[in-house]
């Protein structure tokens, strides 16, 4: 475990470089450049605002008003997307970089963290847009969102873990890309993102702990929507769970790694 941390620490420069290049590459050649990165969450938020204001017809969920509902939804959705991105791309993380595996001594383990950071970058831009909307609607800012970095740690660990696990298995099982799409959809609906936790029957609420993303979403909403401090105990527990998940998948990655060059 300690070795995983030191290994990743020594290659931190590579992880960062790759993440920066990944982000840069996405906007290279587009006329609007980085503006596009802001335009996307902006458009999404506008669409949700328009659609839900028509759909919900003044119905209010719990104590949440219609315009607040859009913020409530987006605060979670915004950080769900990066997870989707990692999960959807993971089967190709290593497979698509066969060159690097076969031709050079490349620290393959950096791909998952780099991709996580690159995806997180979009999450953070989305969050900036979210803050603008929040300020426009609520005429204040959720200042306790300064705890967000701490809340994001388990999510980063989770994404790294998903990247290692699915990246490694994706080398061997090419069908994995087909499995991830329904998996993402199922996971999306199993997580209280488009519905509040309160609609879940009481006796099932405990089962949300089987889904780390649900607990993560809860913490994000605490800081970004309700402007409350996160539940520190839950956050700590979640971080530990995600850390062990990441560690376990890292081990899987190490175990399968000698086979990469042979298969690709």
């Amino acid at each position: 475990m300690w070795r995983m941390i030191t290994t990743l620490y020594t290659v931190r420069g590579h992880i960062w470089d790759f993440a920066v290049r990944e982000v840069g590459q996405r906007y290279r050649g587009s006329a609007l450049g980085l503006l596009l990165a802001f335009a996307y969450p902006f458009l999404m938020l506008t669409i949700y605002a328009v659609v839900f204001s028509m759909l919900l017809r003044g119905r209010v969920l719990g104590s949440i008003s219609k315009s607040e509902w859009v913020l409530y939804l987006f605060s979670a959705l915004n950080f769900w997307w990066p997870i989707t991105e990692v999960l959807g791309g993971a089967p190709n993380f290593i497979y698509a970089r066969a060159n690097l595996v076969k031709r050079v001594v490349f620290p393959v383990e950096i791909i998952a963290p780099s991709m996580t950071l690159a995806s997180l970058f979009h999450g953070l831009i989305g969050f900036a847009v979210y803050l603008i909307f929040f300020a426009a609607i609520e005429h204040r800012l959720p200042w306790r969102a300064c705890a967000l970095p701490l809340v994001l740690i388990p999510m980063i660990l989770l994404c790294c873990g998903l990247g290692w696990l699915f990246g490694a298995i994706g080398v061997f099982f090419r069908d994995l890309t087909r499995i991830t799409t329904p998996l993402v959809t199922a996971w999306f609906f199993l997580t209280p993102i488009v519905y509040p936790e309160t609609v879940i029957p009481k006796r099932y609420v405990g089962m949300l702990w089987l889904n780390p993303v649900a607990v993560f979403v809860r913490q994000v909403r605490e800081v970004a929507f309700y402007n409350r401090w996160p539940n520190w105990i839950e956050l700590f527990a979640l971080t530990m769970i995600c850390f062990f998940f990441a560690f376990a998948t890292y081990r899987v990655h190490l175990r399968l790694r000698p086979g990469y060059a042979d298969v690709l």
Partner: peptide, 23 residues
């Protein structure tokens, strides 16, 4: 080794120099 040492196909030649040098 063979053709196209660890290049990332989507990156430019210049970027690949950085990547490879880093490796």
């Amino acid at each position: 080794l063979e053709l196209g040492t660890g290049f990332v196909r989507e990156y430019t030649g210049r970027e690949n120099i950085w990547v490879y040098g880093g490796i």
